[in-house]
Design a protein around this nucleic acid. Structure first.
Lengths: 333, 333
DNA sequence: CTGAAAGCGCTTACAG
DNA sequence: CTGAAAGCGCTTACAG
């Protein structure tokens, strides 16, 4: 920086002003300094800037999510959004049920003086965490399945609309006895997906009796267990909606054990459109949500905050939608 | 830090010495300072330390790997190993085929003054990258499928031994016409898995004719394409080894299209033991390697370097091994 | 619009 | 075994 200042014939301070887009620099000076920085391949030291600013140029991604594909795709989306910004992404896996969960994350944020954090579900739904971040003056973006915060602090998919679509898809195929495998309590997406599905059924005058609705845990094994219960019912459901793909894979397993053919005997719908949905046989009808784009949007929210730009309200909600493949067909007569 | 120094009645410098485990501190002073730090909940500012040290307390994870589950599990392993060390993990996805791949990673390392980086395959096999890191004085650990560096810079699985085991497993089941789907050129694991498999077959006097060996790309689609070619051969192979699980899933797809039953008509073996291997039907016989432990070991290598401890030679090679499930059975008569 | 001084929180020589 | 001075590379007041 000293070199740049010397060569440009200005003070260190002026170089700093150019770096920080201060309006108090003559256009001529700005251009000259910028050119010199380009030439010399100069990039400011983020640690030194951070020390002076009393905050770092790091973004944290805090997660405790079982869906690996989701986590990686989200990371890649965020990294794409952060590219060239000078901010870097620090990952922080944690255990939301640990007794020191909150103080642990708090210590992380404070020690690294994070500029902001991106919260993945279900941690993103933890209000105590968000309050802690606000107190620390740490920016944040919550990834969620519904609108649970202001647009500037949120990137959400429309889970309930998508599951309503799924319900209507099944109803149109003539299914009336439909099984539902819910997500686990503690995930907002459990409620969103459930409520949307019920609403979609209702439009077609279809009811979901309590015994046709079983709680799962978003795991393969829980999908098997839930499907076994549902397929034991009399009369048996002709279709099952599983609140994620992993559980839908469990439904496939249970159906196969019982000699049921998909989709002839049983239609199945999942949620997430993870790679497994295309590895299953037949390929799974499921709900897709734009994880990569949402990660990029989260990064953009944070960069807006960093440059004091207003929140981009149009970049907060992303539609999820049904992808029809071969696991759904007309209800058996 | 000033507070601590004042309360302890020593200079800032002495506190610093305690922090850095300098031997030149009286035991009594050390204990007193440590107690005070504990009491006050003091943690040194990594940015300030970094600025003075001319390097940061950040570890980079550089990757361009298609296996999301692997990436996340590796991250979690590294984070577990780094926990409490004061080091944080910065993720850096990149495109190994981009023209500015090397300068881009180089700029990242230099700008952040990374203490070290962890390289995931296939990037870990790039020698030009490693030379660049050495020149920069940046510590590194290569994750690999074979011993390609000194133990202190390496965490490797024993891919070739594991595929030899897989080959012998198939041979013992009576298979003699075996198809092989290789990984793509540019991955060291391609050669390791191939050579090990050939060696295993050889032990049983079995040959792999060229037309029974097809190149894949570690993707589902490439697995389908390769399997279609193999299953068209006359005589048809009674078993197929796919160099990863994704391609094995492709083999399932192709077999099903042809009305072949697994394992009655065709035995299948994969590699990676990703979740998909248990979602397939029947569950896939595959090779497991201890990704989480390997991530933790990589972190440990870097922490050893940070505390000037000698490399832990016994913590560099991790055995991969066959997990027998239901996709392999005796060769059809 | 621009600059000289002081400081962010730590560490490295250099003395003692 | 311990301390006073100078510095890491930047920014924030404060002047002009």
């Amino acid at each position: 920086m000293n070199d740049i200042a010397r060569l440009a014939g200005v003070s260190k301070k002026t170089v700093s002003r150019v770096l920080n887009n201060s309006p108090f620099v003559r256009e001529e000076t700005r251009v000259k300094v910028n050119e010199l920085m380009q030439e010399m391949g100069y990039t400011p030291d983020p640690q030194a800037r951070g020390l002076a600013f009393r905050r770092s140029f790091l973004i944290g991604m805090v997660f405790d999510n079982p869906n690996a594909q989701m986590v990686v795709t989200m990371q890649e989306g965020v990294l794409a959004g952060l590219k060239g910004s000078g901010f870097e992404l620090v990952v922080h896996a944690c255990d939301r049920n640990a007794p020191d969960f909150l103080p642990e994350v708090s210590a992380f944020v404070e020690r690294q003086k994070l500029f902001g954090v991106i919260l993945l579900p279900p941690i993103s739904e933890n209000n105590a965490l968000v309050e802690m971040l606000q107190e620390r003056g740490c920016h944040y973006v919550r990834m969620a399945s519904a609108v649970i915060d202001e647009p500037g602090n949120l990137v959400a998919s429309t889970d309930s609309l998508a599951t309503a679509e799924a319900a209507k898809h099944l109803a149109k195929l003539g299914h009336t006895r439909i099984g539902f495998i819910a997500g686990p309590p503690g995930f907002r997406s459990r409620a969103e997906r459930r409520l949307g599905f019920l609403a979609g059924l209702k439009e077609h005058g279809i009811d979901l009796p309590a015994r046709y609705s079983i709680d799962g845990a978003y795991t393969y094994e829980s999908g098997i267990a839930a499907a076994e219960k549902l397929l034991k019912l009399n009369p048996r459901p002709t279709a099952i909606f599983a609140s994620n793909d992993e559980m839908a894979a469990g439904v496939y397993h249970a159906a196969r054990q019982l000699g049921l053919s998909i989709p002839a005997d049983l239609s199945v719908v999942g949620f997430d459109d993870t790679p497994v949905s295309r590895r299953l046989w037949p390929p799974l009808t499921t709900v897709r949500w734009p994880i990569h784009d949402m990660g990029r949007a989260a990064a953009q929210h944070l960069l807006n905050a960093a440059s004091d730009q207003p929140a981009d309200d149009d970049n907060a909600v992303f539609p999820a939608f049904l992808v029809e493949r071969d696991s759904t067909a007309s209800a058996p007569k």
